[in-house]
Each structure stands twice: as C-alpha cells, then as structure tokens.
C-alpha cells in the first residue's frame, strides 16, 4: 500500500526584509555595538525564523507547498522575502 507513503519534513522559513526596506531594529542594534566593544560588526539585519513540520509525498512537493504558504501568509511580499530550508525527517 505504497500510495499512502508520505514523508515528514522539517522546515525552517527565514523571513527577511527586502533590500531597501528600512530595518530600524537592525540599525539600532548596530549603533549599540561599539559601546560593548564590538567595533567590526556591520550590516546587522533583523528578521524572523518560523519552524514547522510538513507532510508531503516528496521534497519537491513539500518545497512547492511551503513556497505557496510563504507567499500567501508567512511573508508580505511588498516588504519581505523568505529563505526556505527543508530537511527530511521521519516517515509518516
């Protein structure tokens, strides 16, 4: 009965502000660093990480579903991009 064979994938979605979108949190952290003695740290960006598992037939099916989820819900494409990482977990 292999038609019901599905995999569980571990997914991490990193949501990042798109280039050109103001990142006042990153800028504020960067400005605070010299006071702590960290002089060489630059280009601080703040985003968020969303982790979940997803059940799918294979990795490409999981990838497609996660991309759709990112576009419609997890990010606002006007201001945000996402980077998706998928790893095979246990089989369902």
């Amino acid at each position: 009965m292999c038609e019901s064979w599905r995999m569980i994938f571990d997914v991490t979605v990193e949501v990042r502000l798109r280039p050109g979108i103001a990142d006042p949190q990153g800028a504020t952290i960067e400005r605070a660093l010299p006071a702590l003695g960290f002089d060489g740290v630059q280009d601080v960006k703040v985003g968020k990480s969303i982790r979940f598992t997803i059940e799918a037939a294979d990795e490409s099916a999981a990838q497609a579903e996660v991309e759709d989820l990112c576009h419609r819900f997890l990010t606002n494409p006007v201001i945000e991009d996402s980077v998706v990482t998928i790893a095979a977990g246990a089989s369902a």
């Binding site: 006042p24 606002n76 201001i79």
Partner: peptide, 17 residues
C-alpha cells in the same frame, strides 16, 4: 486592508524605531 489586498502597499516599522 493592505494585507487583504483591498489597498496596495504595506506599513513597515516607523523610521527611528
């Protein structure tokens, strides 16, 4: 309304945080 696509664009964090 912007998230619902009834209006274009988005509201980001205030400049100056």
């Amino acid at each position: 309304l912007t998230e619902a696509h009834l209006l274009p664009g988005a509201l980001q964090k205030n400049a100056g945080l």
